[in-house]
Design a protein around this nucleic acid. Structure first.
Length: 586
DNA sequence: GCCGTTTTCGGCCCGACTGTTTTCAGTCG
């Protein structure tokens, strides 16, 4: 078990504990803290355990160290198994409903006696929940609303979950004898923000016998992360993985690979106009091939890669991220597709937290992690004072923090730069949590909404517009506040927001956290078309958070962004000039 | 369950919002 798996297990214990009646909230926090501590350990956890080096790690006391050792040596934690056995599934399901926490869940469970979300829905409709102590009509309606949100997102998983599960199997499979080409397809390859399942396409030599295919399928279905096998044949096998996500593997002869890969990459929406185009050229396309039709005969058009398929259709290659039928077919035919931004185009990261507010690592540690990843600058943005839950900074804290940054910059002279910034709360009325003088003393300002999510749309939009018009606000952080699979964003007229940002030269970030990916890629494209500079920001609260940048790249590419559209592809000097110029214009 | 000490038990982040109450509990960030 690696440290991420151990951390995930500890986090699950924390969740299960919240649902246990009479549990101690500080014990829960201890498990949450321990999960974070384990996640940001440096080094291989098995070795740390063997050498007894966990002792002394903040957040890990004798009990937690014992549990971690148990996890590493036996691959499970008995305490966890026991909690799972004693926690009804419906309680876990209810936790996903916004507005329902452990207290209310336990009350509903005891007094209404529901065993599934469907029963909960019926109980609400039968008006059985509104009469519980502390409940009422509004709460009952809110639960019904929440149930609808949950059912709309049922059976979907974060991109990051699908990526981790898919990649683990891909890495194992690619080493197997007989594999010629292997690629993840489907919505995962298109980098959708959430995915329903994982599709993988594998090719073997055209002459390979069924023994080769069968051996590969045996290997696939016997992977340790496979929880159940739902289908198994020589060309297709289906499994359910540990996280609950379904996965299909298709095995084809190598000459068929590009067509199959293309077919299972989708999207359906992309394929419909593509097939129409093929037909107009007397061709037809399916997962077996691209065929020229003549006198009722179909002749295969040989393609070695997907690019060959598009070329045969007289189009440029369409990157998987763009295959959503949002104009890419026409653009590819006109040779007008953008060259999409890549991770290697990024020069630095903005929007990073440290232990000064709610981050887990010091400024120095965050900076050194950025250096190790090849970045040349880091924009530090700890929370402002209103965010008291996150230990937000006061103006005098900012001043002292600035002095620490000055010292580090001196030390890093020439090879790395830390910019002084803040993630400043946008107050209810759209003014900011710091005065102008404080904001002016910083290199740049990210402004975000962290409170009053439930204002009516018009008021919320006005609040945002006022912040955008503030001359000191350079970047709007996670603009809709959505948590993928968790809650919708606050009501906001994003078209107006984008319009205003364009007018004031204010940037809108792509928050790269896998649970946010906010701004949504559908609006990223709109923002780009208005000429808005879009930074890709990790919103990192720990060293590992910096690696989330790649999720932001996925969103940027889905939003048709070129390197020139992304603020942090600029080098340090150009970035500083950019902030300077936009402030002096105001 | 961890931590730190006023050394062995009490504190652990806390303010705002919502919907319920009629002064507060539950949830959220």
């Amino acid at each position: 078990m690696d440290k991420n798996q151990v951390a995930a297990l500890l986090e699950e214990i924390a969740v299960l504990l919240t649902l246990k009646e009479g549990s101690n909230s500080f014990e829960i926090r201890a498990y949450e803290n321990a999960a974070r501590a384990v996640g940001s350990l440096e080094g291989e956890i098995g070795q740390l355990v063997r050498e007894g080096k966990l002792k002394g790690t903040p957040g890990l006391g004798p009990t937690l160290i014992k549990r971690i050792e148990e996890a590493v040596t036996t691959e499970h934690i008995a305490f966890y198994d026991e909690l799972v056995a004693n926690t009804p599934q419906v309680k876990l399901d209810m936790l996903r409903i916004p507005g329902l926490g452990p207290k209310r869940i336990n009350l509903i469970y005891q007094q209404v006696n529901v065993t599934s979300l469907a029963e909960l829905e019926q109980a609400c409709k039968d008006d059985k929940v509104a009469h519980l102590p502390g409940f009422g009509k509004k709460t009952q309606d809110k639960i019904l609303q929440g149930l609808e949100f949950v059912s709309q997102h049922a059976d979907r998983y974060l991109y990051s979950v699908g990526e981790a599960e898919g990649e683990r199997i891909r890495a194992a499979l690619v080493e197997q004898p007989g594999v010629v080409r292997l690629q993840i397809a489907g919505s995962l390859r298109r980098r959708r923000e959430t995915v329903k399942d994982i599709d993988m396409v594998l090719s073997v030599d055209d002459q390979a016998g069924s023994d080769v295919r069968r051996a590969l399928m045996d290997f696939f279905t016997s992977q340790p992360s496979v929880k159940a096998i739902t289908g198994k044949g020589e060309t297709k096998s289906s499994v359910i993985l540990q996280s609950g996500i379904a996965m299909d593997l298709r095995v084809v002869g190598d000459s068929q690979f590009p067509y199959t890969l293309h077919h299972f990459t989708g999207s359906r929406e992309h394929h419909i106009p593509l097939r129409r185009r093929a037909l107009s050229m007397d061709m037809t396309i399916n997962d077996y091939g691209l065929f020229q039709m003549k006198d009722g005969q179909e002749t295969l058009i040989p393609c070695k890669t997907e690019a060959d398929i598009y070329a045969a259709l007289q189009m440029d290659y369409v990157e998987p991220e763009l295959r959503e039928d949002t104009g890419e077919i026409d653009a590819a035919a006109r040779h007008a597709l953008p060259t999409l931004v890549q991770e290697s185009d990024l020069r630095g990261v903005l929007h990073v937290h440290s232990t000064w507010s709610d981050g887990q690592n010091s400024i120095r540690e965050m900076a050194e992690a950025c250096i190790a990843r090849g970045y040349s600058y880091m924009g530090l943005t700890d929370h402002s004072k209103l965010a008291s839950y996150a230990n937000g900074l006061h103006a005098d804290d900012l001043k002292r923090q600035g002095e620490e940054i000055d010292r580090l910059n001196e030390e890093f002279a020439g090879r790395f730069h830390i910019l002084k910034g803040t993630e400043c709360d946008i107050l209810r009325d759209g003014t900011l949590d710091f005065d102008d003088e404080t904001l002016a003393s910083l290199d740049f300002v990210v402004a975000s909404i962290h409170s009053n999510f439930n204002l009516p749309q018009a008021e919320q939009t006005q609040r945002m517009l006022r912040a955008i018009a503030n001359p000191y606000v350079d970047i709007i952080g996670h603009s809709t506040g959505r948590i993928l699979l968790g809650r919708p964003g606050y009501p906001l007229d994003l078209d107006q927001v984008i319009e205003a940002a364009a007018e004031h030269g204010t940037c809108i970030e792509i928050n790269a956290h896998p649970s946010r990916l906010d701004l949504d890629w559908r609006y990223v494209r709109k923002a780009r078309d208005k000429g808005i500079q879009i930074p890709i920001d990790p919103d990192a609260h720990a060293l590992v958070g910096i690696d989330d940048m790649r999720y932001g790249i996925g969103v940027a590419r889905k939003g048709w962004l070129r390197a020139s559209d992304v603020l942090n592809t600029k080098d340090f000097e150009a970035l500083v000039t950019f902030f300077h110029v936009r402030r002096s214009k105001k």
